[in-house]
Simulated assay, not measured.
Amino acid sequence: MFHPLRVGAVERITDDAVAVTFDVPAALRETFRHVPGQHLNVRYETAGGEEIRRSYSLCSPAAVAPDPPVLRVGIRLVDGGTFSTYALKELAVGDRVEAMAPSGRFTLEPRPGLFAAVVGGSGITPVLSIAATLLAREPLARFCLVRGDRTVASTMFLDEVADLKDRYPERFHLVTALSREEQAAGLPAGRLDQERLTSLLPALLPVTDVAGWFLCGPYGLVRGARRALRAMDVDRGRIHQEIFHVADATPPATETTSPDATLPGGAPGVEVPPEATLTATLHGRSGSWPVENGDSLLETVLRRRADAPYACKGGVCGTCRAFLVRGEVRMDRNYALEPEETEAGFVLACQSHPLTPEVAIDFDR
């Protein structure tokens, strides 16, 4: 369900990025109370009547009742991006934007231990919320942040991260790598690729003692970081990832960051049956409909249920996650679900196509 929220602040944080804060009415405080690392799905209607949905991570620390929740998101301009262009050029204090309750599983409930993150560009957004909340609530927690950016001027939330370093000098460790600019001190210029991380991370901290690794940013960075950690024997259950940008090309089925695209037992490339029926359960109501013209499961549901959950439709945000109750499907792309989730039977409805005449999914699981 979408709720109208008033824009309380729009702050320019780099030449191509803004931080937007939404005011939360008293009646919706519990609805919009978030876990650190979650995101908001927002909806906007263009002047031409087109509905645009996007997902933006919350950068603000998670508030505990009775304190009101603070909803602040980071938005970076994307070439051709309808909503990001609107946010940077037109969005103003007092405007109304519709948003769903916070969601997402790239999260960390504060607890003692050593935690670390490798982020690139706007991937700092959810990790800022995670680190700030953890350090504020748990005095026995430590956090190591390794971040990559193009230049200092393009670095999002530079002041907020510096503030964490000043407030928690013994518990917060920051390492920055710039790909297009040399630093006066610190790492030499260059990307945080798999080879570099393989040599860098063990020099910074005891890699296998880290209770949770959080990888966020472009697909290439996340893939390289995950491969580096797995090569250092980090258990995959301790590695959490969120992709912020994916190229058009689909990774090979053997890619470790993208589980087998067919569930529960088919193989990629199997022909979709000419006629298939989808049964979907959403908000406690079920319906059955034919899957037409090679549509995805999400497109099939949206024809009859406008309240079906989605944001990116690209297999990245995970908003359309559903449990596969019956049948088999092929997922074209998956950058949102962890291996444990696909093994348990969850799929991305926006990327799934039926491989059997009957398929049933449940969005409420």
Rank of each mutant, 00 (worst) to 15 (best):
G94Q: 00
G94C: 04
R96Q: 12
V97L: 11
E98T: 04
E98H: 11
E98C: 06
A99S: 05
M100K: 09
M100Y: 02
M100I: 04
M100D: 04
G104A: 02
R105L: 11
T107K: 04
T107G: 00
L108I: 01
L108H: 01
P112S: 03
P112T: 11
G113N: 06
L114I: 11
L114K: 02
L114G: 06
F115N: 05
A116T: 07
A116S: 07
A116H: 04
A116E: 08
A116G: 05
A117C: 05
V119L: 03
G120D: 02
G123D: 04
T125V: 13
L128K: 14
L128D: 04
I130S: 09
I130Q: 03
A131S: 15
A132Y: 05
T133F: 14
A136K: 13
E138K: 08
P139S: 05
L140D: 14
A141T: 00
R142Q: 11
R142C: 10
R142K: 14
C144Y: 02
C144A: 12
V146Q: 06
G148Q: 07
D149F: 14
D149R: 05
D149P: 03
R150C: 00
R150Q: 14
A153Y: 06
S154T: 15
T155E: 15
T155Y: 09
M156P: 00
M156E: 08
F157R: 00
F157S: 01
F157W: 01
L158V: 04
V161T: 05
A162H: 05
D163F: 12
L164I: 12
L164E: 03
K165Q: 15
D166F: 05
D166G: 08
R167M: 11
Y168E: 01
Y168Q: 07
Y168P: 01
Y168W: 06
P169T: 03
H173A: 08
H173K: 08
L174Y: 10
V175P: 10
R180D: 14
R180P: 02
E182P: 06
A185Y: 11
G186F: 06
G186V: 06
G186Y: 15
A189Y: 11
G190N: 09
R191G: 10
L192S: 15
Q194T: 01
E195G: 14
L197V: 11
T198N: 10
S199C: 08
L204A: 07
L205A: 13
G212E: 00
F214P: 00
F214V: 06
F214I: 03
G220K: 10
G220S: 09
L221Q: 03
V222P: 01
G224F: 08
G224W: 13
G224E: 07
R227W: 02
A228P: 00
